[in-house]
Each structure stands twice: as C-alpha cells, then as structure tokens.
Simulated assay, not measured.
Amino acid sequence: MVNLFSDEVRRNPYPAYAQLRGRSPVLHEPHSDLWMVFDYEGVKRALHDHEAFSSIVAPPSAMTSQWLVFADPPRHTKLRALLMRAFTPRAVAGLEPRIHALSHALLDQTIERGEMDLAADFSVPLPLRVMAEMLGAPTADSPRFRHWSDVIMALGYTVAGSEEADRVQREFAAVTEEMRLYVRDLAGQRRAAPKDDLLTRLVEAEVDGERLTEEELLGFFQLLLSAGHETTTNLLNNALLCLIEHPEQLARLRAEPGLLPSAIEEVLRYRSPVQAMFRVTRSEVSLHGQVIPAGKLVLAMIGSANRDPRKFQDADRFDITREPNPHIAFGHGIHFCIGAPLSRLEARIGLSVLLERVKGFRLASDAPWEPRKAIHVHGPARLPIRFEPAA
C-alpha cells in the first residue's frame, strides 16, 4: 500500500489519491484498522452526517476532548453557539486594518534583502499575531503562543503507543497546564475589566443561561491557537507555491487583481490546507458497496475529495477562474470551520500586500520542501523564496 505519510507523498499526495480513489473510494487499512474515504460524495457525507459519523474521536480522558471539533450535538450545538456569539462577522471585519498593518510590517523586515523564508517570516507570524490580538493577549506573548501551537500540532504526527507519542503527550500535558494558568489569569482580567476582544466575548457569552466552564474556555483557547493560525499559514504558503508553479496564472492574477478571491478558493481546493478529518462510525455504515463496522476510526480525505474528477472538471488543473468551485476545504455541515471568514480575509490581505510590493517570486532552492509535521495538514514547514521589490 502507498505510504500516504511519507514526506515525498505528503509534498504531492494527489497521484496517490487518484490511484487509491480509482481502485476503491473506500479503503480499509488492516494494520491500523483505519478506514479511509477518498471520493467527494463519500467525504462530504462523513463530514456532515453526524448521525452516522461521530466527531468524538478523542476519549473523555484526553485533554483534547473539550475541543469543539471533537464534540457531537447537543454539546457541540451549545459550544458552537457560544463561539459564534463571540466570533461575529463584525468582529472579523473589524480586523481588516490591523491585518493590513501587520502584513506590511512583516514584509518591511525582509523586502530589501530580496529573500525570505515565507513561512517563518510571513505566513506563520501573521495569523498567529492576529489570533493573539483577537484574544486580547499582549503582543510580547507571541513567541510563547508559537511554542504552544507547535506542541499542539505535534499531536498530529506521532503514532499512538510509540516512544515519540509518549514524549509529545508529556509535552502537551505540561503546555496545557501552562495555558490553563495563562487563560485563567487572562479571563480573570477580562471579568474584572472587559475589553473589546474575543476573550471578553467568550467569557461573557451565554446560551440558555450557561457560560463556558474553565475547561471549555481552555479548549477553545487551544483550538483557536492551533487551528486558528495553522490553516491560514498553509493557505498562504500553498498559494505562493501554486502561483510559482503556474506562472501563467500568476500573470493573469497580476493583470486582474479582482480574481484574488477566486484564486484563494482554487488554492483551497487544489492544495487543501487541511487534508483529512477523523470520524468514528456510530453504527454500521454502508458506503460504496462496503460496510464499515460500528466504532471504527474513519479518515475523511478532504484533499482527495477536492481533486475528485467526478465533481471537478479537469480536477488536476490549477485555474484561478474556476466556477463553480464547491470545494470542502473548510469542512461541511455542523462542523464547517467557524474561522473560515477570518482565514479568507487574512489570505486576501496578505497575498494582496505580497503581490503589490513584491515581484519575481521564485523558490530559493531546488531542494524538495519539507512538509509541515502534522499528518492531517498540507504545506511547507519552510519556504525560502527570492524576489525583487516592486517599483
């Protein structure tokens, strides 16, 4: 069987996806007893049919069990309603001037050199600082946030039962205690003196007279800190990769800047930042002539679904004018990503600033890029590029 988790395949998993999807859209991997779904309709069903596919993949004893993404209704309904009241469209839109300022400030640090590591110098710090400021955390705490986020993401690339997994779990437990104290202190400050920030809205939000518990607040903080910047980081990196690999599309985008939102949607489809999501079958599920038994771990392969030729014409072609483009990069159904509008906004502003101030994008090395560690995401850990400042 193809090793989907090797660095070589993770840089370009799409030929492997096509091979496996063509052989069978539902595949059972007996060694790990994992079921993988590769086609668009199957993945979409696994994501939205919460009666058949549960999102509770973390055991109750796990520290991640408080995360919204690992909850089912009715608990999920309550938690999502609380977060939606805090994560309003008005709050997201109000971040636009700050995202502009941060994008320019980050680029100011490297533009005269004519080279940078796009990930370390731009794509990681931009969404991380935005999320820290949304939460009302001091800017000086950004390095701590980056460390915490790296430890959280490390949970996604270790094999359960291995020594490495045990080490990562110990690191995560230690970091969780650090974050618990940090959130407790910050939340206490907001209760005493509310501010116009996300944390204040989370502390004050109520649904049916209930507010978030300390554990739920910590779970939100961990989820927002990791997923809240990881998706945008990969979206920005993948966008530059796509445009460098397809110079004719970059030329068209420069000629027609109004295509940028459409280009971002195509990046989301063509190089989906999140490649897979876990589910667990509640009961036996029949899918494409196969029966997945109850209680089995299912991996819904979003990256494969978004290249399914039965859904997307010329699916392996990168086309910034693609219309329609019903990708499921941000999920589907009740678990559709709450942060999708923010991620799109950050990508639109960040890429517009790069395109405005920089020309001649090219990779600084012929060496294959190193994939980001977590196996369920897609994008480079580092992306050294060279360029010229625009006139």
Rank of each mutant, 00 (worst) to 15 (best):
N3W: 02
F5P: 12
E8Y: 07
E8I: 13
V9D: 04
V9N: 10
Y14W: 13
P15V: 07
Q19L: 03
Q19N: 04
R23F: 08
L27N: 06
H31K: 13
L34V: 12
L47M: 10
E51K: 08
E51Q: 15
F53C: 02
S54R: 00
S55R: 11
A58G: 07
S65F: 07
W67M: 02
V69W: 05
T77K: 10
K78Q: 11
L82K: 02
L83P: 02
R85A: 04
F87A: 00
P89N: 08
R90M: 01
L102R: 00
H104Y: 13
A105E: 10
A105Y: 03
T110N: 12
E115S: 10
M116A: 15
D121G: 15
R129G: 04
L135H: 02
A137M: 06
T139W: 01
F145Y: 08
R146E: 10
S149D: 06
M153P: 01
L155K: 09
G156R: 03
Y157E: 06
V159C: 09
E163K: 02
E164F: 09
D166K: 09
F172L: 07
A174W: 02
D185Q: 03
D185N: 03
Q189D: 03
Q189I: 02
P194M: 05
L198R: 00
L199W: 01
R201T: 01
L202H: 13
L202W: 04
E210K: 14
E214L: 01
E215M: 10
Q222K: 14
L224R: 05
S226I: 05
T232P: 04
T233L: 05
N234C: 12
N234K: 07
N237W: 13
L241S: 09
H246T: 14
Q249S: 15
A251N: 09
L253R: 01
R254Y: 13
P257Q: 04
G258A: 11
I264Y: 00
R269P: 03
A276E: 06
V280Q: 11
S286M: 11
V291P: 11
A300L: 09
A305W: 08
N306G: 15
R307H: 12
P309G: 14
P309E: 13
F312K: 04
D316V: 10
R317A: 15
R317N: 15
F318H: 05
D319S: 03
H327M: 01
I328T: 09
G333R: 05
I338H: 12
P341V: 01
S343T: 12
L345N: 12
I349W: 04
S352M: 15
V353E: 10
D366Y: 06
D366T: 11
W369A: 03
R372M: 14
K373H: 13
H376F: 15
H376Y: 15
V377H: 06
G379K: 03
P380D: 08
R386T: 15
A391K: 14
